[in-house]
Design a protein around this nucleic acid. Structure first.
Lengths: 209, 209
DNA sequence: GTCTATATCCAGATAGAC
DNA sequence: GTCTATCTGGATATAGAC
């Protein structure tokens, strides 16, 4: 290495670009982001981005691939299928709540994608769904939770509530009259959602009316 | 009116433009839609759009205003606050489910807006929330539904589930193994959501575990 | 009110020096 | 690997005839 170069480090450069791009794409979507903005935020030239990722679309795909890889193993919690339903549900509700809370940029990306018509699930998504639904099915067979709901719907009740809480988080907080600090409303929501689910899925009689 | 003109009718022209623009904006978002596309779909020239709406942004604002006006009075169902909770809840769940089903373009628009950082609620939105939450509060006071959940959260459980069902409708259907025709899964979802809510909000004991 | 023609700008992408 | 300079296309927007 006779001549030490300025910054020549392809991997590091790509990482910087991807980091900037992820923020911008999450913030403004694919169509709303220009490679010029990415280049400025990343502190590199526009053509360099082209060199590394071939096209703007290439950057977008790389961003998604990076996110997917980042969450590949730890994306959604693996829950022990042997535990009793009440415990499983508590953990599941909390896991979903935390997942949506902790991955805002991934979620924004997937929402942009969803609106743009991208309907392929993110890799691994199906397996997670299936795993949880399988658990619900078994718990129903054991009589631990009511059997008149299809597992997919149970899944969507829970994830839907958590999803929308974070999607409209600001909106909800603004209209929460007795909001203390932000964290309080979040904790209360999680707590109440858990209680709601536990009762809503209980097998016994006890319906309203 | 000595000279009958070709199509000179400002209001009609604007309406045509707005109709085309609403579809395109809902479909592809603000950034993803060009006024050229709008002009082609509407069958008018680009400059004419500028003439009537001043700018692309002007068209966007006008589209939103038109939607807001369209749904001003009839946007969300007014439910009789005097009816018993179980009946109210059935109607409420169904109303939310139907609302999300029947207004896809309005919802897509609001989602694009939401992602783009527009966080002002649509006019009248707050009043609706308040109305429903007020009902929950009264039902709680009467002992008809459990009192340990805040009305806002109850509201979000229900709307969240319905919201996400339609947001990821295709996705859910694809993974519904025993899906008959599309309508069946929808009806089943509504039915099960209703059942889930009725039990989840019941005041009695009966929690899982 | 509506059009055609056009100005102006900014996007993504390429060429080629270093 | 990284840059500067530049091409090309498509975008919004304007001018001005009809």
């Amino acid at each position: 290495m006779s001549k030490e170069k300025q910054t020549r480090n392809a991997e590091a450069t790509k990482a910087v670009i991807l980091e900037a791009a992820e923020k911008l794409f999450a913030e403004k979507g694919f169509a709303g982001t220009s490679v010029r903005e990415i280049s400025e935020k990343a502190g590199v030239s526009g053509p360099l981005i082209m060199f590394h990722f071939k096209s703007k679309e290439g950057v977008y795909e790389a961003v998604k691939a990076a996110i997917m890889e980042r969450y590949a193993g730890s994306k959604r919690p693996v829950l022990d299928v042997g535990i009793p339903a009440s415990e499983f549900l508590r953990e599941f509700v909390e896991a979903m709540f935390a997942f949506y809370r902790d991955n805002p940029s991934m979620l924004r990306l997937s929402k942009w994608d969803n609106l743009a018509g991208e309907q392929d699930p993110w890799p691994g998504e199906d397996e997670w769904h299936h795993m949880y639904e399988e658990y619900f099915l078994q718990a129903q067979a054991r009589g631990e939770i009511r059997a008149d709901l299809t597992p997919m719907n149970i899944f969507s009740f829970i994830t839907g509530s958590a999803h929308v809480w974070w999607e409209y988080h600001d909106h909800f907080l603004r209209h929460d009259e007795n909001q203390g600090r932000g964290g309080e409303a979040d904790a209360r929501f999680l707590n109440e959602l858990t209680g709601f689910v536990l009762r809503g899925l209980s097998p016994g009689p006890g319906d309203l009316e």
